[in-house]
């Protein structure tokens, strides 16, 4: 496929839809995180209706002023519906304005994913299966990352192209590979995190211990990878603004994320016993369901997704900037990368 896109294809609409999709998905992930934090997943026992009402017709007074768990669960459903509608708009605009065949395919794929995600959410309620909640929690960030990729691929940067940063092909290849590995590692880390978070109360303490161990190990590995990405962007690609933003964001967010992770542990389980001799630990009482506890825990979840989003942004942009001429648009490799 050629790079020269006709005027018709340069419509801003697909990009606008993709960006709004990303912007609506981030709060959706927050609210979804709150649903789990407050264990509100079963606050509404039916689906797709809410206590027998159509989703959009549920009395808003009861929603806004009723119980808190019902408020967030129903709010999560409404936001989810909004994201679904934006996705439909995106598909429509792509089919109308974008002639790239793979892009059209991708738009259908994202629609499929949002339907799957909604269905998983519904099945979690209907079957009251916490394991489904966990899978639902893993597909969420994947969808978010997919949205970011679509936003990049419908952007001007992608279509008009920007002057390539000056590097050797080896360096370019290295950065591409490194950012793809980082992306995959981050996703695996999110899945591990979801398992730590959604551990069934019937699970054995040994299982939980293994999960926590892997989650911590992976935190170290991801951090090392992001540090490498950061370093190479700082050193070599300082001149490429398109890579600078996601690179710096990753560096900053991983620091925030690690401190949120530590805080999450402390607000839920307290300081480790070896700190008992220090005054702050001995006087510390955990406060269950306090606002600071639920915000910390949910922030840890949401920032995880944000890190994934920037990793996707970095990788897709790098893939585009350092496209090897032989692999047409690199889209095949991209799709494989995203599917992982």
């Amino acid at each position: 496929m050629s790079d020269k896109l006709s005027k018709n294809e340069l419509s801003p609409w697909p990009h606008r839809f993709a960006v709004s999709l990303v912007c609506a998905t981030f709060p959706l992930i927050w609210v979804g995180g709150l649903v789990t934090t407050y264990d509100a997943g079963m606050a509404v026992p039916d689906w797709p209706s809410t206590y027998g009402y159509n989703l959009f017709l549920y009395p808003w007074q009861t929603w806004l002023f009723g119980p808190w768990d019902l408020f967030i669960e129903h709010g999560h459903r409404l936001l989810g519906a909004l994201v679904g509608l934006i996705t439909i708009g995106f598909v429509w605009s792509v089919w109308r304005h974008d002639s790239r065949r793979w892009m059209r395919g991708a738009s259908l794929a994202v629609l499929g994913l949002v339907l799957l995600q909604g269905g998983l959410g519904g099945a979690r309620v209907l079957m009251d299966q916490r394991q489904l909640a966990m899978i639902h929690g893993c597909v969420g960030p994947a969808f978010f990352g997919f949205g970011v990729a679509l936003a990049v691929m419908t952007s001007n940067l992608w279509r008009a192209g920007i002057t390539k940063p000056q590097t050797t092909p080896e360096m370019a290849g290295k950065l591409k590979r490194l950012s793809l590995t980082t992306l995959i590692l981050i996703y695996v880390q999110l899945v591990l995190g979801a398992q730590v978070r959604h551990i069934p109360v019937t699970a054995s303490p040994g299982t939980f211990r293994i999960l926590v161990f892997f989650h911590l190990l992976m935190a170290i590995i991801v951090t090392v990878h992001i540090a490498q990405v950061y370093r190479s962007i700082l050193r070599i690609y300082g001149s490429a603004p398109a890579l600078r933003l996601p690179g710096y964001a990753l560096g900053g967010l991983i620091c925030i994320q690690i401190s949120l992770g530590v805080q999450t542990w402390v607000v839920k389980y307290g300081w480790p016993a070896f700190l008992t001799e220090s005054d702050f630990a001995a006087g510390h009482t955990i406060n269950a369901s306090s606002l600071s506890q639920s915000l910390t825990v949910t922030a840890h979840v949401a920032v995880g997704s944000l890190i994934l989003a920037f990793a996707v942004m970095l990788y897709t942009r790098a893939a585009r900037l350092f496209r090897t001429e032989t692999t047409a648009l690199g889209s095949g490799a991209l799709m494989i990368g995203l599917a992982t």
């Binding site: 307290g270 510390h284 009482t285």
Partner: peptide
């Protein structure tokens, strides 16, 4: 709750 242990305070309930 019980300070210095994992037992939380449930005063929010």
């Amino acid at each position: 709750g019980i300070p210095d242990t994992a037992m939380p305070s449930f005063r929010a309930l």
